[in-house]
Amino acid sequence: MTDIAAPPARTPSSPGPRAGGPLRNRLLGRNPIGSLFALPYMVFVAVIFAFPLGFACYIAFHDYFFTAPGVEVERPFVGLDNFADVLTDPQVLESFRNTAVFLVINVPLTAVGALVLASALNAGIRWAAAFRVAFYVPYLTASVSLVGVWMLLFSSGGLVNSVLGPLAPDPSWLVNSALAMPSIALYVTWKQLGFYILLYLAALQNIPSELHESAATDGATTLQRFRHVTIPGVRSATTLVLILAIITGANLFTEPYLLTNGGGPDGASTTPVLLIYQQGIQQQNPDTASAIGMLLVIAVGLLSLTANRLTRET
């Protein structure tokens, strides 16, 4: 192993590390042992991500079904049939509509809330660390725990309704088909906000303080400085926040599964991932489930591109 460790640049035949060196170095790199170090990770990614990704596409384009292990059966190629089935399934269309409702509430609320709280935290105030912890703890905590708490808080006779008194919605939040999805959107915004606050805090620290000072000298109010200095200054973080919020929102499972008891009432909070689970594993139709998954990824990709376009500097 010592011959690998010796820097090749020291021999006269290889003038410098950038200039190539012996053939072996060009073929394997100067530290071939690096391949060995990276190998477990590469095998892991190949087995756990690359292969299933290809397999997901295969399943989506074939009439795929589960069999007993070792049984050879024909699974004919069916082209876009699975996609056609999925796109004419009212349940699937409803789940995508529900996701749209979720994103319309969650994404703007997340971006605005996180930026406002992050800039308030960034102004050199006291107890900033304690506030940060309070905002961050929901993000760290298991959704199953917090869903349990929210379920009780928002139940018919729960604390929220008893505070609202006569203003409490009827039927209550999680069993009301108009409010189920917005309730989930509020819950997820609350749970994830701390993470986005951290992202914005990192971006805010990169804005030179001279910009704020010179704007203040020119007589700009706090609000004007927020609009003309802060918002443009964190643009790339905003792109990231939007994209991550879209991805999170498109992948909801635990919340509709537990909070609204499996996407209820009457499918008003069904999400695509919940359907992937129900169709693929409960009803044993992995082919249509994979088609839903691929449509979801395409939709998320398009939305992310749009978010990227919208926040790009003009």
């Binding site: 590390p17 073929l27 394997l28 790199g29 100067r30 530290n31 071939p32 042992i33 690096g34 391949s35 170090f37 990276a38 990770y41 590469m42 990614v45 190949a46 756990i48 991500f49 690359a50 292969f51 299933p52 990704l53 397999f55 997901a56 399943i59 589960f66 991805i247 498109a250 992948n251 499972f253 991932v273 992937i276 689970y277 693929g280 594993i281 992995p286 489930a289 994979s290 998954g293 691929m294 979801l296 990824v297 998320v300």
Partner: peptide, 30 residues
Amino acid sequence: LDFRGKSATWVLMMLVQMVPFQLLMIPLYV
């Protein structure tokens, strides 16, 4: 370290960051 396959490893890491686990749920389960 400088080794063959380094850039391929980076590409794989990006792929992992972009593919949501939920898409892989069915094939991984199988």
